[in-house]
Design a protein around this nucleic acid. Structure first.
Lengths: 204, 204
DNA sequence: TTCTTTGTTAACCAAACGGTTAAACTAAGT
DNA sequence: ACTTAGTTTAACCGTTTGGTTAACAAAGAA
């Protein structure tokens, strides 16, 4: 047990342990006993504080996603040029994921297992404020700065290039022989490589 | 039950059903009873033919991956220019996945849950014949056709752009409102868009 | 026919699972 | 010292799970 855990409340211990277990094993693969062991507490406490496995999972899920999405949205709706936004997006996204490398796999699994529930949980009725971003694209297309671009594909390419290496990380590491530190160094470099690639492809 | 299933052997029925269930639910999420129901047979037959859940899963896994990898390797080791290889790779990869859209998620999950076992199963002692591809890159760099490129990153970008949309497909469909047919049309178009993007980024 | 092999079924089993309970413990308030 | 409310524990419960078994059926082989 970490030294820190001693002055954490039981609820905090559970949340931390559940996050660790759910992120690495997924909902199906995680056992309540695993979480209890990881937290160093009795299994009954999980139910005392969070009633059921599903409730606990949802708590973790909302915490994890709720930490990511706002930052992304903030970037898209900020007062920057498209080129700047692309640069900031990649840098920020990769920074975020570097601190929690399992998050992309975790999210992609949820997306595939229950897409509607996913959107509902994540957005909770709100809408993605994508309007502003679309208008900006349109404007900068007309003013001739960039060529005509499908915003969905642009966004998809961005996330693909940023997120995919993390999703395939274990195999990338095995093939290249990179340890975690070297892998992270590569991703650090990609913060600049990816925007270059994307911006080059949409510039006129 | 499909009309076809009647003149399939029990073993074939099981393999088909197991593939369907494992691909969509994963190893942890799949139940032996689910597979038996899907195949329209008694659960005991699964063990009669394949002994255990793990053995059955491995069979499916090897079948699925064994169908993909050789095609990819064939392209990399063929006698084409890099530009041609990139074009063929994207086109072929996307075509393959369009016929089995769940495969990338399935594989990425395995990669993350047991990376070493994954490589062992997939390669079975063999090596990825990457030498030839590396030499080709080196040669075409020296002759000035392309700029200096890290082959790992080139390859990672390729797969990222081809595979990621399928991995995030449910959410992409929900956000864009595209049905399966429209999604596939988009991916069909990407067979040409992705090579353009990649080739532009490595051309001198 | 009779025997043997192969395929199939329903019933069963032990273990693992998520979840519950009642009692014990702790600490703060009276 | 007594009460009370919140917390923690071990033991337990019903269900589900992967896996087994024994009886049985179909089809050749003798």
């Amino acid at each position: 047990m970490d030294k820190q855990k001693k002055d954490q409340t039981t609820e905090e211990k559970i949340l931390e342990a559940a996050k660790q277990i759910f992120l690495t094993k997924g909902l199906d693969g995680a056992r309540m006993q695993d979480i209890a062991d990881e937290a160093g507490i009795n299994k009954a406490m999980l139910h005392y504080y969070f009633r059921s496995k599903d409730k606990l999972f949802e708590q973790i899920f909302i915490e994890v996603v709720g930490h990511f999405l706002p930052k992304i949205i903030a970037i898209l709706t900020s007062e920057k040029t498209i080129f700047e936004k692309i640069e900031i997006f990649c840098s920020e996204y990769i920074s975020q994921v570097m601190q929690a490398p399992y998050v992309p796999v975790f999210i992609l699994n949820e997306i595939n297992k229950q897409p509607e529930a996913f959107l509902k949980k994540v957005l909770g009725g709100r809408e993605i404020p994508v309007e502003l971003f679309l208008k900006q694209l349109e404007k900068e297309t007309k003013s001739g700065i960039i060529r005509k671009v499908d915003p969905v594909e642009l966004f998809m390419n961005l996330i693909a290039l940023c997120a995919f290496p993390f999703v395939a990380r274990p195999i990338v590491q095995l093939i290249t022989g990179k340890d975690m530190k070297q892998f992270m160094t590569m991703m650090e470099a990609r913060k600049k490589e990816i925007p270059k690639l994307i911006i080059d492809s949409i510039k006129k």
